[in-house]
């Protein structure tokens, strides 16, 4: 099961534990340091409000997709179909609204329903047939990619109603597109649900130990199904916003978010509440990656360095976290 650690996260803290504090905020400190380094190297371009607002706004899609992933990861399942769900959702909006002239609200509702249906299908195969989620979602993700190619005719579809664009990136507050604030709000909602509701606790218990959760009277299958459906709907919402960011949908590019989203989810699990997939940690992780990639891009570094950064940052961050934890055993 995909738990970043097996540390009992609910243990009360009686006194200030510097090692634990360091571990919780190491990623935040590294992120600030990274921002500082790039600001020194590129004082006029990187260290500008225009750049900060661009970074915050343009990568908020990744925040949504990472939040979608941590819902299922917390419940102990992998969902590899989230990027495909994002793509089909964006394409559903484009085909219905731009090609078939369906009103925007209906097109968005249809996209979210598509997301819910994908979650239901994933849940059916995972729970009824008891197939590992990794295999099921790998299959459904590939299947969805095929449907997207079919429904789009393998081409980019533009001309989505400008109202969507206006509500996603066309309107700014403090110079930052609204999409960033949506991501921030969603992050806070997930944080509240995870930390302060029965549902969040059940999700965590199910992820930590299904048998124990079952013996405690939790309907494990219902919780897992709920997580899968909500996760797919969140990915579909990311797809709607993706269509709103570009004013168009293409059949492939959404899939490229899968690795960064997983990297952010696992990287985020080393921060704020180490040992748990948590939304604030994921949020910090996304922007840590974005700061790194944007800085490297502005420096004109070759694009393969971006891969080195994504992969290297993930492994190094988790390794450092393990050093702080005195190399405790991991379940993964």
């Amino acid at each position: 099961m995909p738990h970043p650690t097996d540390t009992p996260a609910l243990a009360p803290r009686r006194h200030l534990n510097w090692a634990q504090l360091g571990e919780s905020y190491a990623l935040v400190i590294v992120m600030i340091a990274l921002f500082g380094v790039f600001s020194l190297l590129l004082p006029t371009t990187f260290f500008s409000w225009a750049n900060v607002s661009t970074m915050l706004g343009s990568q908020a899609i990744l925040v949504f997709l990472t939040l979608s992933l941590i819902l299922t990861l917390t419940a102990g399942d992998f969902d590899l179909s989230v990027a495909a769900t994002l793509t089909i959702s964006a394409m559903t909006v484009a085909v219905l609204n731009a090609q078939l002239e369906v009103p925007l609200v209906l097109a968005i509702s249809a996209a979210l329903l598509v997301g819910a249906f994908i979650g239901l299908v994933n849940g059916f195969f995972i729970l009824y047939f008891r197939i590992p989620s990794l295999i099921v979602t790998l299959g459904t993700g590939t299947f969805i990619n095929g449907i997207v190619l079919w429904m789009s005719g393998s081409t980019t579809i533009g001309g989505i109603d400008f109202t969507l664009i206006k509500f996603v990136v066309g309107t700014r507050f403090l110079g930052i597109p609204l999409l960033f604030y949506y991501a921030l709000i969603m992050c806070l909602i997930v944080w509240y649900v995870f930390g302060f509701t029965t549902l969040g606790r059940r999700l965590l218990f199910v992820g930590r130990g299904r048998e124990v959760a079952l013996l405690s009277g939790i309907n494990v299958e219902k919780v897992r199904l709920g997580a899968l459906i909500l996760s797919s709907m969140m990915a579909a919402l990311a797809g709607v916003f993706y269509a709103g960011t570009l004013g168009a949908a293409d059949p492939n590019s959404g899939n490229s978010f899968l690795l960064p989203a997983f990297a952010a989810a696992f990287l985020g699990a080393t921060a704020i509440t180490p040992g748990r997939f948590n939304p604030i940690g994921s949020f910090v992780a996304v922007y840590f990656l974005v700061i790194g990639i944007t800085g490297l891009t502005m420096l004109g570094i070759q694009s393969y360095v971006q891969n080195l950064f994504y992969g290297g940052a993930l492994v190094l961050a988790v390794a450092l976290s393990q050093l702080v934890r005195k190399r405790e055993a991991q379940e993964l």
Partner: peptide
């Protein structure tokens, strides 16, 4: 001429255009 090196993600193209506008 400056090159906005990227890995083919449309969100990176978006960043590039906004960078050009801001600079």
């Amino acid at each position: 001429v400056e090159i906005w090196k990227n890995q083919g993600q449309p969100t990176q193209w978006v960043q590039g255009i906004e960078y050009a506008i801001a600079n």
